[in-house]
């Protein structure tokens, strides 16, 4: 066999002092790019995690619009359409659905050996996971923006304008953190694709329906109200909805506040709860991941 065009790889470096490694940011960027490329290569995942929320958005507004609209008007007063009420909930649903795929990507990497390949490279391991997560958050932001656009087409109004719309995307991304962390923890524990998908999906609907996502809490049975008060979805949806409707609609009275005045009173507590939850579950995921990447013998 001939050796065509191998001049560039002619000799292995005999010394080891010219070895180069990336900076931390460089490692983050390399992995951010890889996972974005994979997302583009695999549009099926992008579409699937959008399809269900879109179906919900269209069907709920069309089928329940009249009935639910009355409940919404009862709770929030006239002038609030069900479309505007629902879009923030769908944004959170997108966030949940997309976050499930984060752990699936990790399991995939473990299964096809890329996980080990990355571990044996000189890349900083924290940077590797930050890059991957950043790519997923970026994707979630794009998907929420798509949902907002679709909602506007269907008649929803973002009362706070473009800044508010960006805020809703931000809340959605922040919301996804705890579920991304949860999904990756599942991935590390189960190391199995099906379990990771099922584990994530199983929680999705109970979380969505047992919250303020689809109807004002007052219109729901007591036991649901009780659960909804500790459900992260309620905090995410209410924060996003406050931005959507430009008023404080945070339904959880425990953290009712009037410190900031107006809309922010509905946004800040939700953001604070989600940030805390993200940190907590993120911490768990980091511990699990660092155990998974450790060379310590088990």
């Amino acid at each position: 066999m001939s050796t065509p065009g191998v001049e560039g790889t002619e000799t292995a470096s005999s010394a080891t002092d010219d070895l180069s490694v990336n900076s931390f940011a460089g490692d983050v960027w390399v992995n951010f790019k890889r996972w974005n490329l994979k997302a583009v290569r695999n549009p099926f995942v992008l579409v699937v995690s959008l399809v269900q929320p879109v179906i919900f958005l269209v069907l709920f507004t069309e089928v329940f619009g009249n009935v639910a609209g009355r409940a919404v008007e009862g709770a929030l007063g006239p002038g609030v359409t069900y479309e505007s009420y629902l879009v923030p909930a769908i944004a959170v649903q997108v966030s949940l659905a997309a976050a499930v795929t984060s752990g699936v990507g990790l399991v995939n990497d473990v299964e096809n050996g890329m996980f080990e390949k990355v571990l044996v490279s000189p890349m900083n391991r924290t940077a590797v996971f930050i890059g991957k997560t950043a790519a997923e958050l970026f994707r979630i932001a794009v998907q929420i923006a798509i949902i907002l656009g679709l909602g506007v087409v269907l008649g929803a109004e973002v009362q706070t304008g473009l800044a508010g719309a960006l805020g809703i995307v931000g809340v959605g991304v922040l919301f996804s953190l705890w579920f991304v962390a949860f999904s990756n923890s599942l991935a590390v524990i189960t190391r199995d694709q099906e379990s990771t998908i099922i584990g994530g999906n199983l929680l999705q609907f109970p979380l969505l329906f047992l919250s303020s996502a689809f109807l004002p809490l007052g219109a729901l049975p007591n036991w649901i109200q009780t659960f909804a008060r500790v459900n992260p979805v309620t905090y995410g949806v209410d924060a996003a909805r406050s931005l959507m409707l430009d008023r404080d609609v945070m339904t959880v009275s425990v953290i009712e506040t009037e410190t900031f005045g107006g809309t922010l009173d509905g946004v800040v507590p939700g953001v604070a709860v989600l940030a805390g939850l993200g940190l907590l579950l993120g911490g768990v995921a980091v511990v699990l991941l660092s155990r998974a990447t450790s060379a310590d013998v088990r």
């Binding site: 890889r34 490329l37 994979k38 290569r41 695999n42 096809n112 050996g113 890329m114 080990e116 390949k117 044996v120």
Partner: peptide, 12 residues
């Protein structure tokens, strides 16, 4: 390092 199990990203 070339591990025992083939490790390439099949989507790329």
């Amino acid at each position: 390092y070339m591990p025992q199990e083939t490790s390439v990203d099949e989507e790329l």
